[in-house]
Amino acid sequence: CFKERTRSLLREWYLQDPYPNPSKKRELAQATGLTPTQVGNWFKNRRQRDR
């Protein structure tokens, strides 16, 4: 489970760009304390949910 602060940050970035490039994923990973893989998976799952 991600912290609420982490989730809200991911949601904000998702609204700006649902397909972040690898450098954006690394930047988000540093900002949230997650790994780039976790960030990528979150975006993938979120895109799937929005279908």
Rank of each mutant, 00 (worst) to 15 (best):
G40L: 03
L9G: 03
P18K: 12
R26H: 14
P22E: 14
L9D: 02
W13H: 08
N45A: 07
T6M: 12
E4R: 04
Y19G: 02
L28E: 00
Q30C: 10
W13I: 11
Y14M: 01
F2P: 10
S8C: 11
G40P: 01
R7F: 07
N45W: 04
F43S: 02
E12L: 07
E4D: 06
P20T: 02
T37E: 15
R49F: 08
F2N: 15
C1W: 10
K44P: 00
R47G: 01
N21C: 14
T35E: 02
P20H: 00
S8N: 13
W13P: 03
N41D: 06
W13G: 10
W42A: 03
T35F: 03
R7Q: 12
T37V: 12
P18C: 13
Q16S: 09
R46W: 02
D17W: 03
T37N: 09
W13N: 15
W42V: 00
L10M: 08
T32M: 05
L15E: 12
Q16G: 05
P18I: 06
R7T: 07
Q48V: 06
L34A: 04
Y14K: 02
Y14P: 04
N41I: 05
E4C: 04
D50E: 15
L15S: 05
N21I: 07
Q16V: 14
S8W: 10
T6F: 06
Q48S: 12
E27S: 09
Q30A: 11
F2Q: 11
D50Y: 05
V39S: 01
E27G: 02
P18S: 07
Y14D: 00
G40S: 14
D17T: 02
T6R: 07
Y19K: 12
R51W: 09
K3R: 09
R46D: 04
L28G: 02
R51F: 11
V39Q: 03
R26Q: 15
A31N: 06
F43D: 02
Q38N: 03
E27V: 05
P22T: 15
E4Y: 07
G40N: 15
K44V: 06
Y19S: 06
T6G: 11
L34F: 02
T32E: 01
E27M: 08
T32A: 07
R51E: 11
T6D: 06
P18D: 02
T37H: 12
R26M: 11
R26P: 01
P18Q: 09
L28C: 05
R11Y: 07
R11Q: 10
P36L: 12
F43V: 00
K3V: 04
D50K: 03
N45R: 13
Q30K: 06
C1D: 15
P20G: 03
F2H: 12
P18T: 05
K25M: 14
R5D: 11
Q16L: 10
A31D: 06
L9M: 10
K24P: 01
W42L: 00
R47F: 06
K25Y: 09
Y14E: 01
W13F: 06
P36S: 09
R47N: 06
G40M: 05
R47M: 00
L28W: 05
T35K: 03
W13Y: 14
R46V: 05
T35V: 02
Q16C: 10
E27T: 04
P36G: 05
A31W: 08
R49C: 06
F43E: 01
D50Q: 09
R49N: 10
K3P: 08
K44R: 12
Y19P: 02
G33D: 07
R7V: 13
L10D: 00
K24L: 08
P18W: 04
P36Q: 10
E27A: 06
K25Q: 12
A31L: 15
P22G: 13
D17G: 02
Q48D: 08
Y19C: 09
R7L: 09
D50L: 05
K25F: 08
L34G: 04
N21V: 11
Y14R: 02
E27N: 00
E12S: 10
K25R: 11
W13D: 06
N41T: 10
R26I: 14
L34K: 05
S23H: 08
L28M: 14
N45V: 06
N41V: 09
K3W: 06
N41H: 11
R5A: 13
V39P: 00
L28I: 11
T35N: 10
K3S: 12
R46L: 06
E27P: 03
A29S: 12
T6S: 08
G40W: 02
R46N: 07
F2Y: 14
L10N: 04
D17M: 02
R11M: 14
K44S: 11
T6N: 07
T6C: 06
Q38E: 05
G33H: 06
L15N: 13
G33N: 14
E4A: 00
P36D: 05
A29G: 07
L34H: 06
P22W: 15
W42Y: 07
R46I: 03
K3F: 08
R5M: 11
R47K: 05
L10W: 00
C1S: 12
R47I: 05
A29F: 00
L10A: 01
Y14C: 02
D50R: 00
Q38V: 07
L9R: 08
W13E: 13
P20L: 08
P36C: 10
R49M: 10
R46F: 05
P36F: 15
T6H: 15
P22Q: 10
P36I: 12
Q48G: 09
E4I: 04
A29Y: 02
Q30P: 01
F43L: 00
T37I: 11
N21R: 08
N41P: 05
K24R: 12
F2K: 14
E12N: 15
D50S: 06
L28S: 02
L9K: 10
G33F: 03
E12T: 09
E27W: 04
G40Y: 01
K3Y: 10
N41A: 06
R26Y: 09
T6V: 14
N45H: 10
R46Y: 06
K25A: 08
Y19M: 09
E27Q: 08
Q48A: 14
L9H: 07
L15F: 12
R47W: 04
T37Y: 09
Y14I: 03
R49S: 09
Q30F: 09
G33P: 03
L28P: 03
N45Y: 04
R47D: 04
P20E: 03
P18L: 01
R11V: 11
A29T: 03
T6A: 09
P22R: 08
Q48I: 08
P36R: 09
G40K: 15
R49Q: 14
K44M: 06
E12M: 09
N45M: 08
E12A: 10
Q48F: 07
E4V: 04
V39A: 02
P22M: 09
K24D: 02
V39L: 02
L10S: 04
Q48L: 10
A31H: 13
N41R: 15
P22L: 15
K3H: 04
D17F: 02
L34V: 01
R47S: 04
C1G: 08
Y14N: 03
N41W: 07
Y19L: 08
R5V: 14
F43Q: 02
Y19N: 09
L28V: 11
P22K: 07
G33V: 03
T32G: 01
E12H: 08
L10T: 00
A31E: 13
D50V: 04
K24S: 11
R47V: 05
K44A: 09
G33Q: 05
E27Y: 06
L15W: 06
R47E: 06
P36N: 02
N21L: 08
K24G: 07
E4T: 07
R51V: 07
P36W: 06
R11E: 13
Q16D: 05
K3L: 07
N21M: 09
N21Q: 06
R51C: 03
T37C: 13
A31K: 12
P18G: 01
L10G: 00
P22H: 04
L34Q: 05
R49T: 11
K44C: 02
P36M: 14
K24M: 10
L10P: 01
Y19R: 11
P20D: 02
K25G: 05
A31P: 01
P36H: 09
R26T: 12
Q48P: 03
Q38L: 05
D50N: 03
L28R: 01
R51L: 09
L9Y: 14
Q16K: 10
W42C: 01
T6P: 07
T37G: 12
E12W: 11
D17Q: 02
E27K: 15
L10E: 01
N45K: 08
Q30M: 13
Q38I: 03
V39C: 00
P22S: 12
Q38T: 07
C1R: 04
T32N: 05
R11P: 06
R47T: 02
Q38R: 03
G33S: 05
S23V: 12
S23R: 06
L9C: 04
R49I: 10
K44Y: 06
N21T: 15
W13V: 13
W42H: 04
T32Y: 00
R5P: 08
A29D: 00
Q16P: 04
T32S: 07
G33M: 03
R26K: 14
T32Q: 00
R51D: 15
N21F: 06
F2S: 12
T6I: 15
D50H: 06
R11G: 09
D17H: 00
Q30N: 15
T37A: 12
Q16I: 15
D50C: 04
K3C: 15
R11K: 11
D17I: 01
R49W: 07
K25C: 12
L34P: 03
W42N: 09
D17S: 05
P22Y: 12
P18V: 04
S8D: 13
E4N: 08
T35G: 02
S23P: 08
L28N: 00
R5F: 08
S8G: 10
W13R: 06
S8I: 14
P20A: 07
K3A: 09
L9Q: 09
N21Y: 01
C1F: 15
R11C: 07
R7M: 12
V39F: 02
K25D: 03
R26G: 10
Q30D: 14
R5Q: 09
L15D: 15
G40F: 02
R46H: 09
E4G: 06
R26V: 14
V39T: 05
P20R: 02
S8T: 13
R26A: 15
T37Q: 15
L34I: 07
Y19W: 08
L9T: 11
P22I: 13
F2V: 12
R46A: 09
S23E: 14
S23G: 13
L10Y: 05
R26W: 09
R11N: 12
L34R: 02
V39E: 00
K3E: 14
S23F: 08
R26L: 15
F43R: 03
R11H: 10
Q30S: 13
T6Q: 13
Q30H: 11
T6Y: 09
N45S: 09
L9E: 06
E12G: 09
L10R: 01
P18F: 04
L15Q: 14
